[in-house]
Amino acid sequence: MTTVDLPLVRASGLTKHFGDFEAVRGIDVEVRRGEAFGFLGPNGAGKSSTMRMVACTSPRTGGDLRVLGMDPDVDGPRIRSRIGVVPQEDNLDTELTARQNLEVYGRYFGLSRAHVRSKAVELLDFAQLADRADHEVEPLSGGMKRRLTIARSLVNDPDLLLLDEPTTGLDPQARHLLWDRLFRLKQSGVTLIITTHYMDEAEQLCDRLVVMDGGRIAAEGSPQDLIARHSTREVLELRFAPGDQDAVVPVVTPLADRVEVLPDRLLLYTADGDGVLDAVHARGVRPLSSLVRRSSLEDVFLRLTGRTLVD
């Protein structure tokens, strides 16, 4: 007998309307056990709306959705008992201590006092908050609150962890610390779904992701896949003095596979950035600065939607 793992999340034609507004316009997604799956998209793409439907806190408007094999409309509480949720906005009880936040939350999952007590110790350690365990949450830094929220989401040892923009608004150091924690979770076999508008976050953490824009999915694949499919190997970025850029566009366009014109710079897509830069110089074009880099998900997003991720 062979056992085929059903996907932990399966959505087809999933929609969400708020009044007349269509926030999610029919998306198809499958998330498999053990993978880290990402929703990459700008603000307003419909990422949080999707996450809240998967978290069984927001009823879907249409389409089909199965989470852990169950229908959220029927088995919401049962599904919620087995998943962990890190919402976009922290909703910790800031007037309780870090430890109390974990213990109270654990109790909601039907866990015994003894269990939540020892679990809280373990999670405070994991979140590197052991020394703040009995401090009130209010004065903690943004990064610490975020780590506590993640710790809280793990209190029931979830089969599936939903993280809505886990690092938005944090400084680089705090982000790296969080990434490290999420990486450990992934290593330990927890299935992760992450939304983000940071392409580096998606590249770092996600095995597979969808690019979302305007409530729709524009593309799906691993970060490397998406870059290979929708962009070139390298990108040459050229910056010019204000006003000089427009005249240069027709000159450099034939040199690259594709050129994107951003307000402050030109992006030349090519397999060989240095070669194109030489050619640019040979035509007498003198940019203020130039940079050759590898293609990123940002480029994929630009290609697919004509817009940048973070403006």
Partner: peptide
Amino acid sequence: TTIPASRSTG
């Protein structure tokens, strides 16, 4: 076809 047994304590 099955969802593998839960490891969750909730």
